[in-house]
Write a protein that binds this DNA or RNA. Structure first.
Lengths: 195, 195, 195, 195
DNA sequence: CATGAATGAGAGTTCATTCAT
DNA sequence: GATGAATGAACTCTCATTCAT
């Protein structure tokens, strides 16, 4: 595949991403993507063979960029609590964006895949997030910012709360205040007051 | 609609329920339900006009029964902690059933509805669950079983953790041990040890 | 068929007549009639076996009543010109009612029947109208009100103009003034000034 | 849409035209047209989205061709009376073809459209025909071939008679002689003898 | 007589996917 | 590589008609 094809591939993925954000996963058809990209029906098939494949690649790009963004925005002299709070604030922002997010599409996508295929991305993201939070908590414990018996367990709990908020944002609706309350609750448990 | 059709209505809903459990919401067509029920195409339309309507009614039945089951299984002399633990165990059982559950279908269903229409069932269930847990915690605080500053907040947190577990069970997969760990974590925070 | 059945038959025909006036012929289904009559599906089939049959019977009733109405409204001392003008005015009224008329339904009905079956009603009505107008013209000639070489031919022409107006009212739309102009034109040709 | 599809579009319209001539408008389904054209179900939808649209386009083609045919067949040295008679003969030919005509379909089509949308084609055709006849009559008056007080009114009357004949041909049936009689009557009124 | 549940044929419509150009 | 016309399967929905009660 030449230079040109790589570019077109990327263009398609970026356009498809917007479509998935708008309509979720299931409702998106090859036709939708073809139309959004303004390319020919057959043309799309030269690059991808199904919405499944396209979505997976979109997700891959997404997770790469997510890592970058996160590490970029950490100040040099940030404390563990600072970083955790920053992370939670980021999550909150994403939660509340609701429709401008791949969240829904991602859930829909993994709903219909067998678990065997699931550990690919979503699970890896979850696990790596747990690990990062765990390190953060341990660092915080050392510096006296946090208190926790079992930091791994606490980290997992944080992630489940976030997952709970995320899905709730898509299904029952959630306000900024509700997220704030949860964040404060988490921080209080960890012995930090979130100020 | 006479006696007979009430029965058939119920039969259709029960059969459709199984279909939704198997395939989620989006992938289910009227044709699927027709075939599962072994009735005629037009016959189904005599009772329901869309998968939306059918699903909503399935959900209604479901939530009624859920209430019944829960209140049935509470022992006369149960303490607050007993009841909470029972509740969490129930949730765990449901979580781990994964595919034999309406969870996925419910999420899919509410994904495509506007939030305005969402407070109907899912939100109501969430809120009422929060209230019940809150009462439980307050009772537990009084009896010395639990400790919590703000029981309402703690109750909400419990629900979000459960939601997080529920969605994770559908997407990244979850083991019995993972659920147990979360339950223990919750109980520890509440000052109970879950033994 | 007992007393009761005759009454119900009539009720169905009267109700169906309204339906045909509203929707024409082709768009009317047995279901429409069943619903308009508020009777059971099977019930309708006890009396009629198709919309065709129902419409034909509606038409029969209609043509009987039409005759009655016309002869009723003729004054004792009316001249030929008076009667012709009265007739044309009646036709005008009906033309302009447009949707509240069986005209459209009748056309639609006869469109799909073979000509062999057509001389039943519509043709008979046309012919008898021609004859009546012919007699009228002949009487008018005798009394010096009208002038015509061939009264039969003139009568036919009047009827075709009326048919032309009738169909135009249904298709391209027609105003009261347009009808008036045609009526005046006809009367002028017949040597009457329509005053 | 390239060169090729223009051809196919035309092919579909021509085939559909035959179908409409045979079955009228209402009874024609997309399936009928698909089968007549021997193309795939989806294929038709590539070009047209409804029988309504197809019919309207058939009608457009038809009216274009009608204009051509008429102007083609006028001799260089034809008098006003010659042309009018030619026009009436053309109309007669079409009248008597009855089933091989779009007349019925056209009526059916406009029956179910609102008047607002009707002035599109049918009304325009009517009006322009009136104008042409009017010019013809005025030319004929000047050359001494015709006599008429109000040529516009006379032209309108001619058109309504023709409409009357047209609809009668479809509903009660009409013979060649009947049309001839009406043509002669019209010409006599206009002071020409139609020889 | 009357009911209305049930059937199944058939119309409309949309898309994934292929393939000649 | 790229196009977009074409196909056909799959779905939704509506009714005429029947038939057990």
């Amino acid at each position: 595949m030449g230079e040109k094809s790589v570019q077109k591939r990327k263009y398609i993925l970026e356009t498809a991403r917007k479509v998935f954000m708008e309509k979720g996963f299931k409702r998106v058809t090859m036709k939708d993507i073809v139309e959004a990209c303004d390319i020919s029906r057959g043309g799309l098939y030269l690059y991808f063979e199904s919405t499944d494949q396209i979505f997976l690649e979109v997700l891959k790009l997404e997770s790469q960029e997510a890592d970058d963004v996160f590490s970029d925005s950490i100040a040099e002299d940030a404390t563990a609590a600072d970083i955790l709070i920053l992370f939670l604030k980021e999550q909150k922002k994403e939660l509340l964006r609701r429709k401008d997010t791949l969240t829904q599409a991602t859930y829909e996508f993994y709903f219909e895949k067998e678990l065997s295929k699931k550990d690919n991305i979503l699970r890896r993201q979850f696990d790596s997030a747990v690990k990062i939070i765990e390190k953060l908590l341990e660092a915080g414990v050392e510096s006296g910012e946090f208190v926790c018996d079992d930091c791994k367990e606490a980290a997992r709990n944080v992630m489940f709360v976030l997952e709970g908020l995320k899905i709730s944002a898509q299904t029952i609706g959630i306000t900024s205040e509700m997220v704030d309350r949860e964040i404060l609750y988490i921080l209080r448990i960890l012995g930090a007051d979130g100020s």
